[in-house]
Simulated assay, not measured.
Amino acid sequence: MDRRSFLQKGGMLGAGMFMLDGLAAKADNWRKEEPVNIGMIGCGDRGKGVLSVIESMPDLYRIRSFCDVLDFRLDETKQRLGVNARAFTDYRKLLDDRNLDAVFIAVPLSAHFEVAKAAIEAGKHVYIEKTMTFSIEEAQELTTLVNKYPKLTVQVGYQYRYSPLYFKVKEMIDNDYLGKVTQIDCRWDRNGTWRRSVPRPDLERQINWRMYKEYSGGLPAELLSHQIDFINWAFDTHPDEIMGTGGIDIYNDGRETFDNVQVMFRYSKAGMIGNFGATCGNARDGYLFKIKGTRGTVSLLTNTGIYYPENETKEELQTVDGVTGATKIVWNDDGGTSILNEPTKDGTWYALEEFYKSVITNSIPSSNVQRGARATVCVALANQSIYNNTIEHWKEAYDF
């Protein structure tokens, strides 16, 4: 983009680039009289968390049923919901309900494909938690299946990507506020075992499935895939070369998935390098997401973000303010400016609103099966590299 075009676009900046007022009402144009009847399959921490957001959206959703293979989780969900919903231990019986419109799938990653396939074949709309499937082959098969059911919505639960913050960052990328992006730095760190308490020893693998390779993609699937998916979407790209390392460096407690990982992606066509890391041994950085270009940098949390222009870009933006009379840009002490005028809601709220809209209007959600499949491939190749000490490469067969 030349300087004149950049200056003309500078009016999008101000004291918070994007006003959040009125977002909660934006669904009114496509709401119908009756809410969508939904069932939750999987009532662990994530399933119950999504249900709590669904409860806050009674105009959009009616909770009709829920399912889990563990009785104590069904009891917890009953007590938490306080609604007249049916409980199941077999998801196939839940799917037999002809009045059920859609299902939310929050089961262990290894079961994602099996449950999603059954739900689609039963004629239900599907919201499936990330990562979409456990394997590349499952991603390919699910994509083929979804294409056979064009009237059904299938959305993948990359909830942060539905936030106005992340849509605004994509707009900034498209409008050249970052310039030529070459580096992406991402972390999602914590200081803790990542374990859930187990009431009986025989339930260890069911409850702590994230610790075992048979069921889980580990830290790349559960955490880093959010940021990996955003980069794929925002730049319409995918990595061509994947290099990773890791180990069980902190908790030698019988787990199989690594508690300390680092992956580097080379996006050769885009001319970018992406660094994605996670540890269970230090929480200082927490969620860190930086996208660095020749004109500027964005530094993101899940609900807020700062834009840091390079010196020349900052001078140009100040020229915009002086020439156009746009809202004065407020610079922080560290030279950045807030991307939004206030923090966003939990990303799940925006994702659930989009799912409802897609179901009602028969439109394709932003986080759809093709993009979910692309992120699945990235995670699978990252784990292959991490566990096998290999360099992995993208193949044409992975282009969805």
Rank of each mutant, 00 (worst) to 15 (best):
M272L: 04
F18I: 01
N175T: 05
G305E: 00
R374Q: 08
D176A: 01
M19F: 11
V154K: 09
T361S: 12
E316Q: 11
L100T: 00
V169M: 03
E114P: 05
R195Q: 11
L95Q: 10
G14T: 02
G49V: 07
W233T: 13
R80N: 10
D68I: 01
D253L: 10
G336L: 14
D202T: 09
R295M: 05
T348L: 11
I329D: 01
V198N: 14
T313F: 04
R284Q: 14
K26L: 15
G254S: 14
S385T: 05
S338C: 12
L340P: 12
T153Y: 06
V156F: 09
K328E: 13
T245A: 11
S197H: 14
I136S: 08
V126R: 00
H125F: 02
G82M: 08
K124R: 04
S197E: 10
S225D: 12
Y387K: 07
P164E: 07
W233N: 10
D68F: 03
G157T: 13
I38Q: 04
S135G: 05
K292I: 07
D399R: 06
R62L: 05
Q318N: 09
Y267F: 13
E214T: 14
T361P: 09
M264P: 01
W194G: 06
M132C: 08
S216M: 05
D68Y: 06
W30F: 15
V369Q: 11
C43L: 01
K9Y: 05
K48D: 06
I360N: 00
I306T: 14
